[in-house]
Amino acid sequence: MNLFFSFSALVILILLAVIGVEAVKLEFLFGVIIPYVAIAFFLIGIIYKVIYWARSPVPFRITTTAGQQKSLPWIKNSKLESPNTTLGVIGRMLLEVLLFRSLFRNTKAELKKGPKLVYGSSRYLWLAALAFHWAFLIIVLRHFRYFSEPIPAFVPFLQNLDGFLQIGLPILYITNVLIVVALTYLFFRRLFDPKLKYFSLASDYFPLLLLLGIALTGILMRYFTKVDIVSVKEMAVGLFSFQPVVPEGIGVMFYLHLFLVSVLLAYFPFSKLMHFAGVFLSPTRNLANNNRMKRHVNPWNAPVRIHTYEEYEDEFRDVMKASGLPLEKE
């Protein structure tokens, strides 16, 4: 049901764009208005979400560590897995953001014949996730040949690196293969494991299918159906410089690609894709494990009314004196 819902949503979106551009000729709507609205949703939505998250106090350092914490000088501590300094935390965050350190620890439980419960490491998820995210980043950066004029130096560098194999013409990009393979794996992983399938929601399937749709329309455009990319760049530069133009005859595949990207951008702040911002705000990753070295006061602690002994003595001085009790101050 969840899968059916996600898949039909994607099909409806594709039909919307194809009919809208091909039959109703709404190029301006699909090429200008929807992208702008989507970008507004994306920017405002993400800022809103991050500020909303930042309003939650983190009263205590949640130290889920994977290494020896700093204690006695003769016990060797793990500086990256259980950092107690800001530098260590930055290192841990870099490992997490760039290499998905905690996903690398992923394990799985399997029921083998016997019956015997077997635990083991499961690194395919990590591998596919890493392949997808890096391929996606490189593909986005490669798109700056459409977005910018003059084209920044990193674009030809990435193109040469990515097209290193020089297969076919237009040259096959390694990331184009990687992103499709990785997304396909991530999608079928949810279908073929009954446990995963049981708790996979529409919000798990839909982003994967949407990203796959974006990747495939892009690949179709580059290698098969072809679009007029000079007009595409004219349009992209127009959009980013707030002078939108809609050149004639770009081809429906481009509008489909752009529409799916717009949907992704608009959907982003409401989806699980917000882990992009959330990873930076993970209390278990971004707080140093220094609970035993520094005092962390709960920010919502109510002020406690204290009645010290001196105040007590002042209050009952006369009575205490009369009954002969010893006093600190006469």
């Binding site: 994306f42 920017l43 993400i46 800022i47 991050v50 500020i51 930042a54 309003r55 939650s56 106090p57 983190v58 700056f144 977005f147 910018s148 004029e149 003059p150 920044p152 992209a236 530069v237 980013f240 410089s241 707030f242 911002a277 930076f280 920010p299």
Partner: peptide, 28 residues
């Protein structure tokens, strides 16, 4: 908002990176 300094720096970096095409087009 807690840790507002860090959050605001993060948001500014995010906006600067995301709007790179626009400000690059205007400044280049």
């Amino acid at each position: 908002m807690y840790d507002s300094g860090k959050i605001i720096i993060g948001i500014i970096i995010f906006i600067a990176l995301f709007t790179f095409p626009t400000w690059y087009l205007f400044t280049s």
